[in-house]
Amino acid sequence: MKAICKREIRSYFSSPIGYVCVAALLALYGYYYYLVMMMGSSSYISSVYGVMFSFSMMVIPIITMRSMSDDQKNKTDQALLTAPVGVLAIAAGKFLASFFVFFVASTLGLLPAAVMSFFSSPAWGEVIGNYLGTLLYGGAMVAIGVFISSLTVSQIIAAIGTFAVSVFLMYIDMLASNLSNAALSKVVEWISFNNRYTTFTQGMFSISAAVFFLSVMAVFVFLTARRLESRRWG
């Protein structure tokens, strides 16, 4: 797992993909930070992070799209699957590498708050809450993205698929409120990533939400491993 994770991270940063993803996110962060702070002269740093989060959702599909599909296309999966490594280790290594790129981008996204702290005292509870929430929600999306990437050899399809899923999940609350069937609406609400994420943005650490996101990551890493295994039976 370590070898695969290391190789993937190196591959992200030996090609422009890693840098472009991180740079694009940071540029968008900075731009929005400027808009809110200077033009709106607002002090709501958490609203800045709230928007940053939706930027991340657009970049995650780009980070994960090549994760599994590239191996399948270039037949490098033959090296991985014939090495003495389990499929779960392969899937976990891939997930961790993609997550690392997202982690770097999100962590550097704390820079605005760090800059702010020279001039005033930002609400660190909210900032850290936002940061953790973003990491957890993002981690779940990365796991889903890696899984979708394992379903196809085409990077484009993987990216668009992941993007569609992430947008669907972002607006699933609206769907829930529009459903007339109370039970169904309850179920849809329960799936909602946003509800759980919002708790973090208010500066509260919710263990149940954290467990939910970690479970989603585990389930999709597991599914990716199953997908790798199932290809052997093709």
């Binding site: 190789r7 190196r10 591959s11 030996s14 090609s15 270039n74 037949k75 490098t76 999966d77 033959q78 090296a79 991985l80 014939t82």
Partner: peptide
């Protein structure tokens, strides 16, 4: 030790 029909090489390494 296995050499498949298409060597499993990572072109970016």
């Amino acid at each position: 030790g296995y050499l498949p029909e298409q060597p499993p090489l990572y072109m970016d390494m």
